[in-house]
Nucleic acid binder design. Structure first.
Length: 586
RNA sequence: CGGGGUGUAGCGCAGCCUGGUAGCGCGCCUCGUUCGGGACGAGGAGGUCGAAGGUUCGAAUCCUUUCACCCCGACCA
C-alpha cells in the first residue's frame, strides 16, 4: 500500500478529551474516530490492527477445536425474558421495537442466543463437547464510557460458549481455554497475569480473568512477590497473620463510650489495637424484583469490607450504603451496632458477673472468617453511647461466616506465605465455568448415554477484542507514539522515501518496497510529497515496527533501518535492506 | 445516577466579565522557493458561535430551558 493513497489522518495535537496514551495515540495516529460517547469508527489503520487481532484470536481458537459462528446483533427480547435477564440486566441493555412493535435488544452478550442455538441442533451426548464462538459487535449502554476503546458502549468481543455432558469435561475445556488464551495474549506481545476472579452474578464455580498489567487499568489486582498467585481484589484471599497484636484483657462488661462511634476513635479511647475492635458495616442488599433488606457485616477493625464478597455472601445483586434513617427504622443504633448482648449472671462464687448471648437484631448478620473464635473483642452494645468489652465470639458458632475482607498490601499470601501487593490491570479476557445456569432455565438439554434428558453443562469465554488495541498501546508506547508489536501492527514496516522529487530515491524506495512485499512482509510505502521530518514523525506516532529510510546516503548505496522500539538506526546496503528487515521480523 | 467542567472552522484555542461587522495557530486549496527531523512567502476556501426560547434597536456575549461531550465517584454477566 501507498501512504499517499491511504486515509491516515494523523494529528499533531491531541484531542482535548483524551487522557490515556492509548486513547491519544489511537486518535492522533488516525486509527479511530469518535462518533458518539463510547462509539468509534475504525479508520483504515485501526481496521487493519483490529483484523490482525481477530486473526490471531481465530487462529488459536480454531486450533483448539472451537468453531466460529456469527449470531444476530439484534436479538429478540423474548429470549431475554425467558432467561430472566430482560429486567435484571438493567439500563445497560438497549431495548427497542421494530415497525410492528416487536421488542428487541442489542446484544450485550450472547448466552441466551447461543444456548438457544445449541438447544435447537444438539440433541445427543454424541454431539458433545461443542465449543462455539463469534467475534462480533456488542452494545452495552454503559453509564460512563471512557478512555477511548478501553470502555466503549459499542465494542467488539469474542465470546465463546462450550457445551458438555458433564462437569468434568467442562473443566477440561476450561483449562484448554486458559492455555489457548495464554497463547493468544502472548502472541500479541502482552505482559499479563491470569488472576482468580469473582464469578459474580453469572454464577459458576471457577472464573479467571486475564489482566494486562498497566497503571491505567481499571481493575486492582493482588499479586504475590513469592509465587505466581494473582487475584482480582474482589476475589483475593490471604492467610491470617501470625503476629497478632497483644490482646487487651477485660472482663465481659458494658462500657460507657459517649460519642465514640468510629473504629479510630474507639482504638484511641481504649488504647487498643483495631484488630480487637469489631467493625460493623451496615448495607442495604438489593435482590431481584426490587426486594431489599438491611444486612450487617462484621469484621475486625483492622480490616476493610470487600463489597463484592459481601454481596456474594448473601446472594445479593448489589449492595448500597444503608442510611442512618434506614438503620433506625430497622431498630438499629447507628455507630453502636454489635452482634452480642450481655446478661447479668446469678451471683455465684467463681463465676463471671456477666455472660454473652447472640444479640437478636432482626436483620441478617454475616461474620468474616477471621472472627471465628475471636477473643477479647470490643463491639457495639446496641444502645447509644455504650460498647461491650471483653467479648468472646465463640458464642457465634451457629452464625454465618464468610470471607468478607479486602486484602491489603502487605498481607500474607495464602499459597506461599509471601507478601501481597496491589497492581493495576486491564481486563482483556475472562473465562467462566458456567454449569447449567442458562441451559436449565432456557430448557436446553440433550439425551445422555442413559437415555435421560439433561441440561448442558457449560463454560463461557470472552475476549475484549477492540479493548485489546488500547491495552497493547498502554503497554507499548513512548512519548512519541505507539510501538506496535509486529504481530498486530497495521503494517510490519514502512519504506520512507526522504524526498519523492528525487527520482533516484523514489525508485530505490519502490524497489525495496516491492522486494519486501515479495518476501511476504506487510509493508507500506511512504511516498507522500512531505518533508523528511514530517514523515519520520508520522512513523514514530503510528508506530510501525520498522522503517527503511531511503535518503541522502542513497548515492553511496546506503539506506537506514530504524527500529521503532528504541529508535535505533543501522545502515544497510540498498540491495540487502529488504532481506535485513524480513529477517528482523522473523 | 451524584459532583465538577467544556461546547466558537476539520483539530487546538481566543473573544463572553463590560452586548455593536467572528478571530488566531495547525490543517486544507493555488503558485513559487525549500527538501534529513512536523519549512517559508504570497493568495484563497471554510463557521446556523451545540439547540430552543427570552431580554434588547442590536446577542457568540445577558437570562431561562435543553442537548451533547469530558473528568471524579457510583456502576460495569
Amino acid at each position: 500500500m501507498r501512504f499517499s493513497k491511504l486515509l491516515i489522518p494523523t494529528l499533531k495535537e491531541a484531542p482535548k478529551d483524551a487522557v490515556l496514551p492509548s486513547h491519544i495515540y489511537l486518535v492522533r495516529g488516525g486509527f479511530i474516530f469518535q462518533v458518539a460517547s463510547g462509539i468509534y469508527d475504525f479508520l483504515p489503520l485501526g481496521k487493519r490492527v483490529l483484523d490482525k487481532v481477530r486473526a490471531i484470536v481465530k487462529e488459536e481458537l480454531d486450533a483448539a477445536g472451537c468453531q466460529e459462528v456469527q449470531l444476530g446483533f439484534v436479538t429478540p427480547a423474548e429470549l431475554w425474558k425467558k432467561s430472566g435477564r430482560y429486567e435484571k440486566y438493567g439500563a445497560e441493555l438497549l431495548r427497542f421495537e421494530d415497525r410492528k412493535g416487536n421488542e428487541f435488544v442489542l446484544g450485550p452478550t450472547h448466552e441466551e442466543m447461543m444456548v438457544e442455538l445449541a438447544g435447537q441442533f444438539v440433541n445427543s451426548y454424541k454431539q458433545l463437547p461443542l465449543n462455539l464462538y463469534q467475534i462480533n459487535l456488542k452494545f452495552r449502554d454503559e453509564a460512563r464510557p471512557r478512555f477511548g476503546l478501553m470502555r466503549g458502549r459499542e465494542f467488539i468481543m469474542k465470546d465463546g460458549y462450550s457445551f458438555h455432558a458433564d462437569r468434568e469435561d467442562m473443566v477440561r475445556e476450561f483449562e484448554l481455554m486458559e492455555t489457548t488464551y495464554r497463547k493468544i495474549f502472548t502472541r500479541m506481545g502482552l505482559d499479563f497475569r491470569v488472576v482468580e476472579a469473582d464469578s459474580g452474578a453469572i454464577g459458576g464455580e471457577g472464573s479467571k480473568e486475564f489482566m494486562v498489567l498497566a497503571d491505567s487499568g481499571e481493575d486492582t489486582i493482588v499479586v504475590c512477590d513469592g509465587c505466581d498467585y494473582a487475584a482480582n481484589i474482589e476475589a483475593a484471599r490471604r492467610s491470617e497473620s501470625e503476629d497478632v497484636p497483644e490482646a487487651p484483657e477485660a472482663d465481659l462488661t458494658k462500657f460507657h463510650t459517649p460519642g465514640v462511634t468510629s473504629i479510630e476513635e474507639l482504638a484511641h479511647f481504649f488504647h487498643v489495637d483495631p484488630y480487637y475492635l469489631l467493625k460493623c458495616v451496615a448495607k442495604k442488599a438489593l435482590y431481584d424484583e426490587g426486594r431489599s433488606e438491611i444486612v450487617l457485616f462484621f469484621l475486625r477493625g483492622s480490616d476493610e469490607l470487600q463489597e463484592t464478597k459481601a454481596a456474594n455472601s448473601v446472594g445479593a445483586n448489589e449492595l448500597e450504603d444503608a442510611t442512618e434513617e434506614e438503620l433506625e427504622a430497622a431498630g438499629l443504633v447507628p455507630g453502636y451496632m454489635g452482634p452480642v448482648s450481655i446478661m447479668r449472671n446469678e451471683p455465684e462464687e467463681g463465676k463471671a458477673p456477666f455472660s454473652a448471648l447472640v444479640a437478636d437484631l432482626g436483620v441478617p448478620m454475616i461474620f468474616d472468617n477471621s472472627l471465628k473464635g475471636a477473643k477479647q473483642m470490643i463491639c457495639g452494645a446496641n444502645e447509644p453511647d455504650y460498647h461491650i468489652v471483653g467479648a468472646d465470639l465463640d458464642i457465634l458458632n451457629e452464625e454465618k461466616f464468610a470471607d468478607l475482607v479486602q486484602v491489603k498490601e502487605g498481607d500474607i499470601c495464602a499459597k506461599c506465605g509471601g507478601r501481597l501487593s496491589y497492581t493495576k490491570g486491564i481486563e482483556v479476557g475472562h473465562i467462566f465455568q458456567l454449569g447449567t445456569r442458562y441451559s436449565e432455565p432456557l430448557g436446553a438439554s440433550f439425551l445422555d448415554r442413559d437415555g435421560k434428558s439433561k441440561p448442558f453443562v457449560m463454560g463461557t469465554y470472552g475476549i475484549g477484542v477492540s479493548r485489546l488495541l488500547a491495552a497493547v498501546i498502554e503497554q507499548h508506547h513512548d512519548d512519541k507514539g505507539s510501538i506496535w508489536p509486529a504481530s498486530v501492527a497495521p503494517f510490519e514496516a514502512v519504506v520512507v522515501v526522504g524526498n519523492v522529487k528525487d527520482e533516484a530515491q523514489l525508485s530505490a524506495g519502490e524497489k525495496i518496497y516491492e522486494a519486501l512485499k515479495a518476501k511476504g512482509v506487510d509493508v507500506l510505502l511512504d511516498d507522500r510529497p512531505e518533508r523528511f521530518g514530517f514523515k519520520m514523525k508520522d512513523f514514530e506516532l503510528i508506530g510501525f515496527p520498522y522503517a527503511v529510510v531511503v535518503g541522502k546516503r542513497l548515492s553511496e548505496g546506503k539506506v537506514e533501518i530504524v527500529a521503532r522500539a528504541g529508535l535505533n538506526r543501522t545502515e544497510a546496503d540498498t540491495e540487502e535492506a529488504a532481506e535485513r528487515v524480513a529477517k528482523l521480523l522473523g
